[in-house]
Write a protein that binds this DNA or RNA. Structure first.
Lengths: 264, 264
DNA sequence: CAGGCGGTGTTTGGATCCAAAACAGTTCGG
DNA sequence: CCGAACTGTTTTGGATCCAAACACCGCCTG
């Protein structure tokens, strides 16, 4: 019987070359996260191949990775569709994030280093600065013109610092996976429309940071979990409001955004 | 500029056809989970293609999916290597599982239906029966001869029933992902070597079931988290013992199990 | 006029082909 | 005697090719 094992080559350098497919997947994912490729978009293999200057073969493999990460849905003989969350998806995701990041905060409170603590404080400061700037921007330009800015970056940095401090690699990865489960604009668009919510969000994070600072695992976890759940409720509610306005036929229905085959 | 969107076809039936690639990935994954393909095996594309009667193209896409699921490591120009956990991997995974399944138990306690509760009880009964049988088997045949049996199946069924009862789809998926992160035999081989541990494991589950039955979310969560952490400790310790005996050069080192290219 | 039917163009899916990379065994030089 | 370079073989990676599936459109029929 032909076995598929047969031990073979031994890799000298582990991950020096990222590999074309992984790079492609990361790039496509980035465009989806940023909103450049909107939810409900059909990803055409040939178009992607052209834009990245490669053939369809590596594109197809990249799409399989994105499928496994639940970024796109692949329909046999039809193509890959960029997944969009439903309101319950949002709630569920934030609930789970509350658990995972809560655990991370708890662990971080017991084992954070001084260096990591400095990073956390810096992120909080950046968050505060970004909030001021964003509020000023909204006051002059309006909510609609808001684009991904320093507040969003600081937001990610704060979370990354916390996850890094907890020291559990798998936890980092899983939390990141949840964070990237849907485009960023869905998140901060919900919060930016009411600046007072951002104040609240910042205050919650200050509480978390303080708890970690004084090495209080129980409080750190509690505040972090609360923070995630509260944020999740806000995002989900905003999403539902928005969905009520533009009447998408069905939240779960794939037929949304069908348009026409060639948009010429 | 050529855009990669261009709205297109609308899928009629959602998931009627699994698709060859998904099927392949599932089959390979199953063989890894069952231990038929051991950890550290180099997966040769052509060999896999031959065994499944297809060409290398779909095999490569399937491997990309497994890579995204962290089942294999893909090294550019070298191949795909079946990942094996380290002891810290095991501990981390069970810690996180404690959180997720704890949450699941908490939710299940509040919203489980009578039908689901019946399923949970049935799984517990099967677990008990499987335990008796396994103990008898170990007494006559010895630990070494133990293979995946009804106890393992009942174990999975109990967890699935609980996750199903919690009603959060993403939670189900993430817990399943953790459960399948490494071969099953690593798990129950650790527990089977000391039957009293299985008694303890069963008692813990009875406690959980009882808490869910009386709709006590706090207790359900507590017992479930405890159960997962305890199991994780046992598995990790057994793994460390085993690893100490067969002196693998380095836990993280890829060069393990190098052998020769063609094992003819 | 509505609904079913087949033609046509487009897109995906799998197989095949070829070049580049890596392993293994050998040879050459110190 | 040991190590570095060379060569042959194996395997992966990307491109290309062809068939099958699907969407769109017009036509035909009831």
């Amino acid at each position: 019987m032909s076995t598929e094992e047969a031990a073979g080559p031994r890799p000298r350098r582990a991950v020096s070359d990222p590999g074309l497919v992984d790079d492609l997947a990361a790039r496509i994912h980035a465009q989806i996260r940023s909103g450049d490729i909107p939810i409900g978009t059909w990803l055409r293999q040939e178009a992607l191949a052209n834009t990245f200057g490669v053939s369809r073969t590596p594109v197809r493999e990249a799409l399989r990775k994105l499928q496994a990460d639940r970024i796109v849905d692949v329909f046999p003989h039809r193509g890959a569709l960029v997944r969009g969350p439903t309101a319950v998806d949002l709630r569920e995701t934030y609930t789970i994030r509350g658990e995972l990041e809560g655990l991370a905060a708890e662990l971080a409170a017991t084992r954070i280093t001084d260096e990591q603590l400095r990073r956390l404080r810096a992120a909080e400061a950046a968050l505060r600065a970004g909030l001021d700037e964003l509020r000023a921007f909204v006051a002059t330009e309006g909510v609609g013109a808001v684009r991904s800015g320093p507040w969003d970056a600081a937001d990610l940095e704060f979370r990354d610092a916390m996850l890094d401090a907890c020291g559990v690699e798998r936890l980092q990865r899983m939390a990141a996976e949840l964070r990237d489960a849907f485009p960023r604009n869905l998140v901060w668009a919900a919060l930016a429309e009411e600046p007072s919510l951002l104040d609240e969000s910042l205050a919650q994070r200050a509480r978390i940071r303080a708890a970690v600072e004084r090495r209080d695992p129980v409080a750190a976890r509690r505040w972090m979990t609360d923070h995630c759940r509260r944020t999740g409720s806000l995002v989900a509610e905003a999403f539902e409001r928005r969905q009520a306005v533009e009447d998408l036929p069905d939240p779960r229905d794939i037929r949304a955004r069908l348009g026409r085959p060639t948009q010429g």
